[in-house]
Amino acid sequence: MSPLTSKGFGKPGSYLRDKASGSTGSRGSYAGGGGRRRGRSGRFSNNDHLNPSDDGSPRKPYLWLTILIILSIAITTMWAREADTGPLHTVRTAVQTVTTPLEAAGTWVTAPARNFFNWIGDLGVSRSQLQALVEQNDELRARVVELEELRLLDDRLTALMSVAPTGTAEADVLPATITGLPSSSYEKVIVLNRGTRDGVGLAMPVIASQGLVGVTIEVGPNYSKVRLITDQSSGVAALVQRGRDLGTVQGSLSGELNLNFIPIDAGVEVGDTVLTSGLGGIYPKGLVIGEVVRIADDHNTLYMPLTVRSMVNFDRLEEVLILLNAPPSTADLPEPELQAIGVGD
């Protein structure tokens, strides 16, 4: 019998028919039935809350349960074993090609409400915080002037020495709009409105004006999914700008970034800027990841327990840039390396 045929589910009105025919059941047959009923064999069963259906056929919930559990496990195994072009991956791409516009519609429709709640949240900024921000702004203005001078100097020297700059300068940059927010509590993955039709591929870095955002992990014709650096599956090869110490920035379920593998005797301090190191083959060197905000007081470890805060406000991101050909190229990266940075399964 087909699992969802109207016969299997019974027919409307059978509850009333049961009552009219003097059925001894205290519950309606819609609800799966309780009490004693006559089964197919014509005998009454004490386990009828599990067995009978409206037409008297056995419902066999344990049989269905067993079959579907086995099927679920088989699907999970198949998914883990098959390649990106396998049937399950193809089905997922097809499903997501259909659902992505719906997701985008939801994000668009609810944007005013989200902006309103964000605005309410901002009302809580205190006078002292405001004063601190004003001071910081003055300081940053001075830094901008200073850095602009340095940038002009760098441009001149680069031209003179004909040295190709690292980072994003060599990459083709594609602007993209965020059309979907994380759809599950356990993953921090956003959806962009650019896909293979725009030249987007797997494992391409995504940045915002404040720094690194994440990497593309799934690409369809009209969409791409980006795993944020704050996702617990994400890992970025990193470099502390001041001390040049190398480590790995790892996301977490809470959204905090942890900087791992920095030796305990390294001179990292709160406020140090953390950049991508260019190692690992995905992210180009020199992209801003964030700054060190906390050093846990634990002397019993080999590595410093460091917490990094990204400058990017992931809750309010609207537009990002995809680095299409960021050096070094990632097209030929082996599967284990892709998995190490959270790309692929």
Binding site: A31, P61, W64, L68, L71, I73, M78, V95, I217
Partner: peptide
């Protein structure tokens, strides 16, 4: 409302749909 058999079948279908619209492992 419908009992364990329908709950089991609908649960499987709904779970599969949830997995397919997500980004982690399907199943």
């Amino acid at each position: 409302v419908r009992g364990s058999k329908e709950g089991t079948i609908v649960g499987f279908i709904a779970g599969l749909l949830f997995d397919l619209v997500g980004t982690t492992v399907v199943g």
